[in-house]
Amino acid sequence: MRMRDTFLKPMHPEGFKFVGVFAAITVVLFLIWEPLGWIGVGLTVWCYYFFRDPARITPQVPGLVISPADGIVSLIETVSPPPELGMGDAPRLRVSVFMSVFNCHINRAPVPGEVVKVAYTPGKFLNASLDKASKDNERNGIVIRMDDGRDLGVVQIAGLVARRILCFSKEGDHLRRGERFGLIRFGSRLDVYLPEGVGTEVSIGQTMIAGETVIARLTQDNA
């Protein structure tokens, strides 16, 4: 890998306008006072890295559930899925990945399958690391139905700073494991509701890499 590739990562198109705004403000800050301009340079670089969209090598071994987000596992609980997902009331294991403002915020499909539900719910903007954020915060959930007929839910949750959830997928789309399906601006959380009876292979505090880190193994091999 060339040194340039280590520091220069592809940027998602959603970030172009924000980097442009930050750069324009930086020019103005330089005209006002040079030290302010250098602060603007730092913030512009941060904005560029926030929207970075690096290539990921997704394991294709059947039956794997891959992390949909970069970040830290903040919660592992057995709870009922949000009612808007239509996944029933039976408790499922939920793995929550908290993304700070320094993480890559591209969200990737944890399993392959058909998107059978997309549900947006308005709400508050509490700290996304809190448990009650799953119920109170603005969120967007998708349900992916795998080839074996089982459903897996993924919920994008806005955080204290985040003010925009983007979902690129719609009902009827077929996603590949590791395929990009959305992003959240700026700092947020992803909840994964595993199929009934499926356990997790991660622990609280563990670092996740979207599209690469295995969070669970399904009991069947046809996913």
Rank of each mutant, 00 (worst) to 15 (best):
P112K: 10
L8K: 06
N103T: 05
M208P: 06
R108M: 07
E77D: 15
Y120I: 01
L75M: 05
L130G: 01
K170T: 15
F186S: 03
D5E: 14
G182L: 11
G15N: 08
A223G: 05
F168G: 03
F16I: 09
P35Y: 03
I144R: 06
K17Y: 08
G15M: 02
R217K: 15
F30V: 01
I25Q: 01
R92F: 13
S100L: 08
G15V: 07
T213L: 01
Y48W: 13
R176A: 12
Q60M: 14
G187W: 02
A55M: 15
M99Q: 13
W33M: 02
V73K: 00
R185Q: 15
V19N: 05
L8A: 11
E201D: 10
F98M: 08
I215A: 03
K117S: 12
T121F: 05
A162W: 07
V45S: 01
D147F: 04
I165E: 10
G37F: 00
K9G: 00
L43T: 11
F125L: 15
V27F: 05
K117C: 14
K170D: 14
L43V: 11
S134H: 12
G149E: 05
P10I: 10
L130D: 04
P13D: 10
N103A: 08
P54C: 07
L126C: 02
V21A: 15
R145G: 05
G211H: 06
M11K: 04
V101L: 09
L8I: 15
G211F: 03
K170L: 03
I32H: 01
T121Q: 12
I209M: 11
Q206C: 02
R56A: 11
T26H: 02
S74H: 01
P13E: 05
L85G: 02
G199L: 09
N140H: 08
A158H: 07
V118L: 12
L36M: 14
S169D: 06
T121N: 09
T6M: 13
I106D: 01
K17H: 06
D136C: 04
G113I: 07
L194S: 03
N103K: 09
R150Y: 03
L194H: 11
F186R: 06
S67E: 09
S74I: 00
A69E: 09
N140A: 08
L126N: 09
L175S: 10
M208H: 09
V41Q: 03
A119I: 13
D53Q: 12
E114T: 14
N107Q: 12
D70G: 07
Q156K: 07
W38K: 01
A128H: 01
R92S: 13
D53P: 04
V45N: 00
A210C: 08
S96G: 12
I39R: 00
L194C: 07
A23L: 15
I204A: 13
F18L: 10
T78V: 14
V118Y: 07
D173M: 05
F18P: 06
H12A: 14
F7L: 14
I157L: 09
T121E: 10
P195M: 13
I215K: 02
N107M: 10
I142S: 04
F16P: 00
S96F: 04
A69Q: 07
E77W: 01
M208G: 04
V65H: 00
V65I: 12
P81W: 10
K17P: 00
G159V: 12
D5Q: 13
I157Y: 04
R180F: 03
S188C: 10
